[in-house]
C-alpha cells in the first residue's frame, strides 16, 4: 500500500514538478489546443458548407477530407504531418515542431467539427432561410446572420465534446520531440516518470487536464442554458394589444 501511494501520490515529487507543469506544460497545452480548436472551427465551418453544397465538385473533396481524417488514428496523422511534412520539405513553420503539432490536431479536429456543424446547420428549419431571403438578404448574409448562429447553438454540447478531445489529443504531439520550453503537460510528466521511475508527475499532469476539461463542460452547459432561455432578460408576460384585440365587425 505504501509503495502504491509512493508511486502515484508522492507529495515531494508532485511539488517538485508542479512549477514546470504549470508554467511550461499547462501554457503549451493551452496554446496547442486552443489554436487547434480555432483552426478546427474555421476549417470545419468551410468544410461543413462544402458538405452541404449541391455541386459534387465542391462536396466530394470535403467528403473525402472528412472520411480520411476521421478514419485515421490521431497518432498517425500527427506523425504524418509533424514528421512527414518537414522531411518532405514542406516547412511552413520552420524546424520547430510546435506549428506542425497545432496544424495536425487542427486538421483532425476540423473533420469532426465539420460534421457537427453540418448537422447543426441542417437542423435549422428551412423557413428561417426563406424568411431571411424574402427580406432581400443574400444567401451568404442569411447563412451568416440567421442560420449559422442558430445551428452552432444547437450543437454546442457536441462541439464542447470535441474541444475536450482536442485538449487531450494535444498530448500526442510529444512524439514530435519537443525541446525544453516547448513541452506540454504530458511530455513533462512522461520525462519525469522516465527519470525518477515514479508516476506522481503523471498524476499531477492528469489533474491539470481534468482542471481544464471538467469545468469546460459545465461552463458551456451554463452558457447553453442561458442562450436557450434568452439573455437574462425578464421573462415575458404576453401583453395583448388593445387596438388589435377589439372586435371589428
Amino acid at each position: 500500500m505504501e509503495e502504491f501511494l509512493h508511486t502515484f501520490f508522492d507529495l515531494d515529487s508532485i511539488v517538485a514538478i508542479l512549477p514546470v507543469l504549470l508554467t511550461e506544460g499547462l501554457a503549451n497545452t493551452l496554446i496547442i489546443s486552443v489554436s487547434a480548436v480555432l483552426a478546427g472551427l474555421l476549417l470545419g465551418l468551410v468544410l461543413a458548407m462544402m458538405l452541404m453544397s449541391k455541386l459534387w465538385i465542391v462536396k466530394v473533396p470535403a467528403r473525402i477530407y472528412v472520411d480520411v481524417f476521421r478514419g485515421l488514428p490521431a497518432i498517425l496523422t500527427i506523425s504524418l504531418v509533424g514528421l512527414g511534412f518537414p522531411a518532405a520539405g514542406i516547412r511552413p513553420f520552420g524546424t520547430s515542431p510546435f506549428g506542425y503539432a497545432i496544424l495536425a490536431v487542427g486538421l483532425i479536429s476540423a473533420a469532426y467539427t465539420a460534421e457537427i456543424l453540418r448537422s447543426g446547420i441542417q437542423s435549422i428549419d428551412k423557413g428561417q432561410l426563406q424568411a431571411a431571403r424574402s427580406l432581400g438578404m443574400t444567401q451568404f448574409q442569411a447563412m451568416r446572420k440567421i442560420v449559422i448562429p442558430q445551428g452552432i447553438r444547437n450543437v454546442l454540447p457536441a462541439l464542447t465534446n470535441r474541444f475536450i478531445i482536442d485538449i487531450k489529443e494535444s498530448s500526442l504531439v510529444y512524439l514530435l520531440g519537443l525541446s525544453v520550453g516547448q513541452r506540454e503537460l504530458y511530455f513533462i510528466a512522461y520525462q519525469q516518470q522516465a527519470v525518477t521511475y515514479n508516476s506522481s508527475a503523471l498524476v499531477a499532469a492528469g489533474i491539470c487536464y481534468l482542471l481544464m476539461t471538467i469545468p469546460l463542460t459545465y461552463v458551456v452547459n451554463a452558457w447553453d442554458r442561458r442562450l436557450r432561455t434568452g439573455r437574462s432578460r425578464p421573462k415575458a408576460v404576453p401583453v395583448p394589444s388593445q387596438s388589435t384585440m377589439e372586435v371589428v365587425s
Partner: peptide, 9 residues
C-alpha cells in the same frame, strides 16, 4: 409565412 418564421435567436 404560415409559421411566422421569426428569427428565434
Amino acid at each position: 409565412f404560415q409559421h411566422f418564421n421569426l428569427f428565434p435567436h
